[in-house]
């Protein structure tokens, strides 16, 4: 179990840093991104696999962890909260569900003659479509809540002096 969690954390950290690199963050931000991505993704992994939480709620909890962690680390290292949090959230963007949505559209169009299969793919489309939209929305909420709750801290993260 420990190995599974560690495995998840390590690969989430690589994925976070990798996708983060595409948006050109400051070099100093990479360790923070890795830490946030690993803890957030591993937290979601534990919630989903060992505590039986569904993917939407687990994503919300994990994105909150990343959001508040980003606020704290951003405070320490003088980065805007989005610079460390967004790359850390990227590994949780539900690519597999989005793929299933597209796949089910194609199969839906291909199975016109077989009503049973046809409705199965219809169901698969709605199921995966709703889930992926919800998860993306919840991921963004995780960044917004810390900003909304502590605007004074969130707005002055890059200030070198007189921090709140």
């Amino acid at each position: 179990m420990i190995w599974a969690i560690l495995h998840d954390a390590v690969f989430a950290a690589i994925a976070g840093m990798g996708f983060g690199a595409l948006s050109n963050p400051p070099i100093k931000a990479f360790p923070y991104i890795a830490l946030l991505a690993a803890s957030g993704h591993a937290f979601r992994f534990v919630l989903m696999n060992y505590l039986g939480v569904d993917i939407a709620l687990a994503s919300l909890a994990a994105s909150m962890l990343i959001g508040f962690g980003g606020l704290w680390l951003g405070y320490i290292a003088c980065f805007p909260i989005t610079v460390v949090s967004i790359p850390a959230l990227l590994p949780m963007v539900p690519g597999k569900l989005a793929y299933n949505t597209v796949f089910s559209i194609i199969m839906f169009l291909q199975t016109m003659e077989d009503p049973e299969e046809h409705s199965r793919y219809m169901y698969m489309f709605i199921d995966n479509g709703i889930l992926s939209l919800t998860v993306i929305f919840f991921l963004a909420i995780g960044v917004i809540v810390p900003i909304a709750l502590f605007p004074k801290i969130a707005y002055t993260l890059t200030r070198r002096q007189h921090k709140y």
Binding site: F19, I86, G95, Y99, I136, I141
Partner: peptide, 26 residues
Amino acid sequence: DIAITTSVLFLIPGVPLINGVIDVME
């Protein structure tokens, strides 16, 4: 199937998606 799904994920515009939701909420 996992290989095919994940091969295109680097194209997903994650930053505008999250920024968009932030903008709307604010």
